[in-house]
Design a protein around this nucleic acid. Structure first.
Lengths: 337, 337
DNA sequence: CTGTTAGCGCCTTCAG
DNA sequence: CTGAAGGCGCTAACAG
């Protein structure tokens, strides 16, 4: 009960193994009738090529490594979908690692990944350890850092400035005549912190920043967490607060829920703004003002850039490096004036 | 600029390559001082073993293939999280395929997967093509079919009876004195159909089944789709309807939203029940009655069963085949009386 | 257009 | 406990 090999197919088709190899890999330079004979033999036998052998011999893996910090965050679903859709089309495979927001797990994952000779790597953010960074650089394959603008990209960077987005939200709320604006944040990864920084800078520029109104936790984000952060905010500030910027929509939905319970009217007494624009945001009561970001595009674009770099053509050489801004967009709904 | 190999490490540590191999694989039978010397060399050189070579030579891949129909459905996130958490702990890798609810894509994915000598396969449901099924059977590795109870499991089956769940919801609604009960369904994959079947059987047993109240679409599910299916229902039945069972919570949230808009009071004039118990379900207005299923557990259990079968011990031999029921649970909230 | 030769990097099997 | 030989299945490079 041995595994079928090229040789078996070759024997059946009465050709040499290399010819079978060429047929399998769709290489040209095989006559049509020979190709058919081989294909028939493959079908007949149900032959499936051994990829390890192929990778070892050719050092072409058709493999892209993807490292993301969470599998429970909807944000990454959309990104992943973008990545998978493009990868599958190009017949590439994805090796996905969940780093749980830990640079150490990330480092371990990179090491494991590098053992598989990936032809490209998509990694979240720019908080890699020095070792990880070195390994990545030495891998000599296209690397795309996604989700946020990073300070010193390893190679390519696809995302948007979370700092600017945070600032834009602060400005929006100021424009709507809110003056006692709070920030609620969970998980507090790098990008969330950047949103907070942008937010703080904008507020402090007009002297409306009050640190008591910034409530954060390192715990994961959830609707329930939105509820409890908001309660904490109300307690700490004794209700002296007229708007909340939540670091994501889940939190914001929790705030909306709690406002109803506390009989605080939104958007009059309390403006609420989320982040991400998940589908639910359009269906809350009142509908949630939030920031839309192009998640699917971040994934698909990252994948496309890897392919452009792997298979260079004359017209794409220029684009394949540096920072690609996928942008963000304020979505005004009824949870703000 | 060649890639580092075992030999390079061996040369540096002044031992034979095989000794290095043993150290790398944590095999015993290497003296402590030799092991240390080798480990030092590995660290110094930054050696990363080549997995293709290792897999080829040993035919042990430490790879589990996972096939799911969608990356946008939250349901699969939780399942995946369960799978990844267990796999990572055991130092196994996951090769994930998105089959887009297509048996043909699934077949292609299985073929690709089988080329990588996976040590186990987790696949969604039981609607494989005959060819797929044959390939899977001939792979001679543990196969776990997840999500729903399937008719003739290939190997192991982890999930619950969607038919029973659908029936349970129907019964719940009947118990709450709803009599004109509708079903709203999107995507309509096998499991959704089974829920519908269970639902219909229960209603028809007490003569309350009316097919006009069953509105479905093959389009993907979403909150917006819930809105439009509900509108269609109201139109078709001219409002002659007092409860809705939605095939998932997204749809149900859309229904809740639309009821408010149409001034239909929930739960008095209209009972609403969802499916899945996503976090948001507890925070809608009114809170959503739904069916809780153990998604994370389905994933982690599937993975555990694969390991039990791959590494048999005396106490686990009995459990590793047949059907493992992960159950479901009605969660009563305020969207039903 | 097709075949031959010689590995890819590692691990299995057996000696020592 | 350690090492030497050989091969896993495939493909690059060249020859015919």
């Amino acid at each position: 009960m041995k595994r079928l090999t090229l040789k078996d197919v070759a024997a059946m088709a009465e050709v040499s193994p290399i010819t079978v190899s060429r047929v399998v890999n769709g290489a040209d330079g095989v006559r049509a009738n020979v190709r058919q004979k081989v294909e028939a033999a493959i079908a007949e036998l149900g032959y499936i090529p051994n990829r390890s052998a192929s990778v070892l011999a050719s050092s072409k893996s058709k493999l892209i490594g993807v490292l993301i910090p969470s599998l429970s965050n909807v944000v990454f679903n959309d990104v992943l979908r973008g990545i998978y859709d493009i990868a599958t089309t190009a017949n590439y495979q994805i090796l996905l690692f969940n780093t749980h927001y830990s640079p150490l797990e990330e480092m371990r994952a990179v090491r494991t990944l590098l053992g598989q000779s990936p032809e490209g790597i998509i990694i979240t953010g720019g908080e890699q350890t020095a070792t990880t960074r070195t390994m990545l650089e030495e891998a000599r394959v296209p690397i795309v850092q996604i989700m946020g603008k990073v300070d010193k990209p390893i190679d390519i960077n696809v995302g948007f400035s979370h700092f600017d987005a945070g600032g834009a939200v602060a400005q929006l709320l100021l424009d709507k005549r809110y003056r006692k604006i709070a920030f609620l944040g969970a998980r507090m990864d790098r990008r969330t912190c950047q949103r907070l920084d942008g937010f703080k800078q904008r507020l402090s520029a007009v002297n409306y920043l009050d640190d008591r109104r910034i409530i954060t936790t390192s715990e994961p984000s959830s609707v329930a967490m939105g509820v409890s952060l908001f309660r904490e905010l109300m307690e700490v500030t004794k209700g002296d607060c007229d708007a909340v910027f939540c670091c994501n929509d889940d939190l914001a939905i929790g705030v909306l829920h709690e406002c109803k319970k506390m009989n605080i009217s939104v958007p009059e007494e309390m403006g609420v703004c989320g982040f991400n624009d998940i589908e639910m945001a359009a269906f809350t009561e009142p509908a949630l003002t939030t920031v839309r970001v192009n998640r699917y595009r971040m994934g698909s674009k990252a994948m496309e850039l890897i392919f452009e770099k792997t298979h260079p053509t004359s017209e794409n050489k220029s684009t394949t490096s540096g920072y690609i801004n996928t942008g963000f967009e304020l979505v005004m709904r009824n949870s703000t004036r």
